[in-house]
């Protein structure tokens, strides 16, 4: 009997037949109390307060109002950076997701028996995943110069680490029956994986890739802040000039792009399963 059960005594339920069983009390109050305490603690540590939000919050709408009406004339200069952004996210997502596959396979415990290989691969994926995209983009601009190549690379790196983790977890949940059958027929580990496991994870893999692409479009839009090309570059510039009508136009275009890509990806993902 645990300590909790000693404080909050289990309830005895008796059946008409006279047999009885003890029903343990719910742990929920204890968990709620813990969550509340942690929330209070984090408010104290971060110094969060509603005061400034209430007194200065209207400033947000001041800028928003200045964006209206958006500068329609500026639209013609948005297309090139917009396509740069889309290009970066598409290419980066594709390269990253393809590169993730072999690493995911050797990070899955049901495919690789060696603890060492598993630990090293997972550690590698975790380390890469902790690199913020903005930082990798900044480093990439030092190596490859300003432009979309740096952005593409940093998006590929992020996608690689994210898909790598998702995919190895998906591989670990597959039904191993078909894999066992392939091995019993004399298949190599690779061919058994390819024939028996890959078809099982393919829909989930593609779905994760598309989900990642959705997020990457938004990421790609801010990478221009560190010189990695795309919408972020002109966004940064126009905010610097306090040209809010143009900023408004950029945001509308970005919004429309994100909505279209999300709708498209949502549609394809619904067809996958």
């Amino acid at each position: 009997m645990s300590a909790y059960d000693k404080v909050f005594k289990p309830r005895r339920i008796t059946l008409p037949s006279g047999k009885s069983i003890l029903e343990k009390r719910s742990r929920m109050p204890l968990i709620l109390l813990g969550v509340l305490a942690l929330t209070a603690l984090s408010v104290r540590i971060t110094g969060f307060s509603f005061g400034p939000l209430l007194s200065r919050g209207n400033q947000f709408f001041v800028i928003l109002r200045q964006m209206y009406p958006p500068n329609m004339k500026y639209l013609s200069s948005i297309w090139v950076p917009l396509f740069d952004t889309i290009k970066m996210s598409l290419l980066g997502s594709a390269v990253g997701s393809l590169l993730a596959v072999p690493f995911a396979v050797i990070a899955a415990s049901n495919m690789i028996k060696s603890r060492l290989v598993l630990t090293l691969t997972r550690l590698f994926l975790s380390v890469v995943r902790t690199l913020p995209t903005l930082v990798t983009a900044l480093i990439a601009t030092y190596i490859f110069g300003l432009g979309t190549l740096a952005g593409t690379l940093s998006i590929a790196i992020f996608t690689f680490a994210y898909i790598g983790k998702q995919l190895y977890e998906q591989i670990e949940t597959v039904d191993m029956g078909a894999f066992e059958a392939m091995e019993a027929m004399g298949g190599t580990r690779f061919s058994s994986f390819w024939v028996a496991v890959a078809p099982q994870v393919l829909p989930a893999y593609l779905s994760t890739c598309l989900f990642c692409l959705e997020g990457n479009v938004r990421y790609a839009a801010i990478l221009g802040y560190v010189g990695a090309g795309g919408l972020g570059m002109i966004l940064n510039e126009k905010i610097g000039w306090r040209d809010y009508p143009s900023v408004g136009m950029i945001l509308i275009v970005l919004f429309a792009t994100v909505v279209v890509i999300e709708a498209l990806s949502h549609y394809i993902r619904s067809k996958l399963t």
Partner: peptide, 14 residues
Amino acid sequence: IGMIFQSFNLVSRT
């Protein structure tokens, strides 16, 4: 040597 299993062990998605 062929092997047959209780749960068939087919690739069900193909």
